[in-house]
Nucleic acid binder design. Sequence first.
DNA 1: GTGAAAGCGCTAACAT
DNA 2: ATGTTAGCGCTTTCAC
Lengths: 331, 331
Amino acid sequence: MSGPTIYDVAREAGVATSTVSRAFSNPNRVGATTRERVFAVAAELGYRPNPHARALLSGRHHTVAMVVSDITNPHYFELIRGAEQRAKASEYTLVLVNVEESPRVEWDQVQRLVPAVDGFVLAASRLPDENLRQVAGQRPVVLISRELPDLASVVLDHVEGCRRVVEHLASLGHRDLVYLAGPRNSWMAATRWSALQAATEENGLTARRIGPFTPKVAQGPAAADGALNAGATAVVAHNDLLAIGVLQRLAQRGVRVPEDVSVVGFDNIFAADLCTPGLTTLGGVHADVGRVAMELLLDAAAPAGRPEEQPRVVLPTELVLRGSTGPVRAP
Amino acid sequence: MSGPTIYDVAREAGVATSTVSRAFSNPNRVGATTRERVFAVAAELGYRPNPHARALLSGRHHTVAMVVSDITNPHYFELIRGAEQRAKASEYTLVLVNVEESPRVEWDQVQRLVPAVDGFVLAASRLPDENLRQVAGQRPVVLISRELPDLASVVLDHVEGCRRVVEHLASLGHRDLVYLAGPRNSWMAATRWSALQAATEENGLTARRIGPFTPKVAQGPAAADGALNAGATAVVAHNDLLAIGVLQRLAQRGVRVPEDVSVVGFDNIFAADLCTPGLTTLGGVHADVGRVAMELLLDAAAPAGRPEEQPRVVLPTELVLRGSTGPVRAP
DNA sequence: GTGAAAGCGCTAACAT
DNA sequence: ATGTTAGCGCTTTCAC
């Protein structure tokens, strides 16, 4: 089943195993001619270094895990794509874990992987802070869409982004906004809410929050009905999926968007541009988020050891205006 | 950096290392009391078996790789989700590789992973047949959306599915159809085209093919223009992404759908329900495809060894009717 | 520059 | 039921 080993190569090439090993891991500590012969023989035999044997000794696996809380959310595709690309560029293997919004599954999976990977990218982790710190004590960790003192993280700038959302709504004459909150243990949900509160206060609007809602299309009806019941003129949904569900429910109930109600989402997923009306949403370059997170992780996992200072990267957002927001209806 | 080993546990528990090993890998070959003590000590020390040491010896890694040709295509996400779920259920680790439609990248990545994984799920592989056979000689392989004699595979039933598409179009009065072909080295593209040909012949229609097109929204304009130029009344696009791009371009050129042209896609991605008009498309339960493929792979990778018969699973499709198809315009 | 030999953490005979 | 021991494939001192 498994192929030739350094022993086979060493024998064929008439050298010692250590020489073969060096030829592969430290080419310039081996004589040029020897090296060539070793490579030639290795190629001929189809030799490939066994990563496990290597990992066993070095403790480094050239593998990192990325944990996402809901793989079906299109928003994560871009994150994953960016991270995968970056990992591949450094010849790192990417292990993907979907934890379906469950902190328990997340914890179990992470613990299972601790001995097998060099580090973790945790996207929208649902784990409590103390668990996150525990993991960080075991392996380098980079957080996406979550911040924690002493841990590296990459997030979009929601303070600035939410301000833009609020200013946009204010400029359309809205005086009040209803936030359809995301999951209770979502750091993003808390962050968006407080950013919205701050921005509404600044702009002399009021903000209310209902929820929490699981941020999926299927939760749209409940969220829409709640918003309508609250007499909202402008709703800001936790993400585009929820917003799209809201849009569908409003249409179904004969509520016009944006004439009667304006709707804003977050993430700018592909579908936001396709629904009717198009969804105004706060986007960002998610692939970059994934890429940067992986970059930080690879730095941290590098043999050089990790710096004391854990970087916290904040990337810009962009408010994408589409048809779902418009002037408030006359009172 | 790395934690306690079986030696530490053995010493603390006052037993031999082999006993600790057995307690973990074969619990019922160890006395109940001993086992309990071993577990207690292990828990206390925070011992976790090192998967690499285990893999080095057994040759089995409890890890499988899934290779997809374009991670940004939402269609693959369901596949990945199903496969990931199934792998997790058996405590297998899933390595994800995105090869961005490049056979070269695909080959390199697969070869890099051969020594590190127990098998491969190759989704919509762009590799030539002979390379696929080579890989299958190295590790168990299950193909998705591709068939090859002697290799295990899971595909949707496109013969039947394309017949439904054609019958639907025929029932609307269309006499001719234009297929916007997928990539040249895509097995699916070839399969869909021949299934469409067969079905059109059966139903007395004609079929033409233009392309190939990279199946992305961005290729929509080129595909739409080509179809219009060919005087199509009904276009069948290689996938929903391409179809959505076509829809956008047609709208932009003032061509009405479905009054002037009917459009059909494949995959029934989430967005197909959101665009205007909704996209008629041939769907299937993609998560099941991923799940079944992983199941086959885990069976093949099981210590029992693989059966000589390589299973070929064909799952049913479902034609989802939406607004993008309608009666042919009067000539 | 190259070889000999000692492990990395674990499992699987083989003993007892 | 449990202990002893020999490796899995590779890297890494330590010699030469």
